[in-house]
Lab assay of single mutants.
Amino acid sequence: GVTLFVALYDYEARTEDDLSFHKGEKFQILNSSEGDWWEARSLTTGETGYIPSNYVAPVDS
Rank of each mutant, 00 (worst) to 15 (best):
K23T: 06
S42G: 05
F5Y: 15
E12N: 12
A40N: 00
E47V: 10
V2E: 15
E47Q: 12
L8G: 10
K26T: 05
I29W: 02
N54V: 08
W38H: 07
D10Y: 02
V59F: 10
G46H: 11
G24K: 04
T45Q: 06
T15N: 13
Y50C: 10
E34W: 04
S32R: 12
N54D: 06
F27P: 00
L30Q: 06
P58T: 05
R14D: 08
K23C: 08
P52M: 09
K26P: 03
L4N: 13
V59N: 07
A40G: 06
W38L: 13
G1V: 12
T15W: 06
S32E: 10
G1T: 15
G1F: 12
R41S: 10
E47S: 12
S32C: 04
A7P: 00
S33W: 04
L4S: 11
R41V: 13
S42F: 02
L43W: 05
A57E: 15
D10V: 01
G46W: 03
F21R: 00
Y11V: 02
L8T: 15
S61R: 09
L4A: 07
L30G: 06
A13R: 06
S61M: 14
T45F: 02
S53K: 14
G1S: 11
L30W: 03
G46E: 11
T44W: 04
N54K: 10
T44A: 12
E25Y: 06
V6S: 08
H22F: 15
I29H: 01
L8A: 12
N54Q: 04
R41H: 14
H22T: 15
P58R: 07
Y50H: 07
H22N: 09
K23I: 07
E16S: 07
H22E: 12
T3N: 15
W37A: 09
E47C: 09
A57P: 00
L8W: 03
W38E: 03
S42N: 14
A57T: 12
S42I: 12
W37R: 15
L43H: 13
S33Y: 11
E34S: 08
T3F: 05
E47N: 15
E25L: 01
D36R: 09
R41P: 00
T44P: 05
L30H: 03
V2R: 13
P52D: 14
E16L: 12
F21Y: 01
D60S: 11
E47R: 12
F5K: 10
F5E: 02
G49K: 01
L43S: 11
G46N: 15
P58C: 05
L19K: 02
G46T: 07
D60P: 10
G24N: 04
T3Y: 15
D17R: 12
N31W: 02
D36E: 09
L19P: 01
A7H: 00
Y11L: 03
G46S: 09
W38T: 11
T44V: 08
S33R: 09
Y9M: 15
S20K: 06
G35L: 08
V2S: 15
L19F: 14
G1A: 10
G24V: 00
T3W: 02
N54T: 11
N54Y: 05
L4P: 04
G24R: 03
D36F: 04
D17P: 10
Y11S: 04
L19T: 03
W38G: 01
D17C: 02
A13P: 09
W38P: 03
E12K: 14
N31H: 01
T48V: 05
T44G: 10
V59W: 14
F27I: 05
E39H: 11
P52L: 09
G46I: 02
T3D: 03
A40T: 02
E47P: 00
N54A: 09
V6R: 10
V56I: 06
F5N: 06
G24M: 03
W38I: 11
L30F: 04
W38Q: 10
E34L: 08
T44C: 05
E25K: 01
D17M: 14
E16D: 13
D36V: 07
P58N: 03
F21L: 07
S33F: 08
D18E: 09
S32V: 06
D10T: 04
G35W: 04
K26Y: 05
D18G: 13
T45P: 00
D18C: 10
F5I: 06
T15M: 10
Y9C: 06
E12W: 04
A57S: 11
S42K: 09
R14H: 14
S20W: 02
N31K: 14
T48G: 08
N31V: 08
L43Q: 14
F27T: 01
G46P: 01
E12S: 13
T45C: 04
Q28C: 10
K23S: 07
N31F: 02
W37C: 14
L8N: 12
K26E: 13
V59T: 09
D36P: 13
D17H: 12
S53D: 04
S20F: 02
K26L: 04
Q28K: 10
E47A: 08
P58F: 03
D36W: 07
L8M: 15
G46F: 10
V6P: 00
A40E: 01
G35R: 11
E12P: 11
F27K: 00
L4D: 15
T45V: 02
T3L: 11
E47H: 13
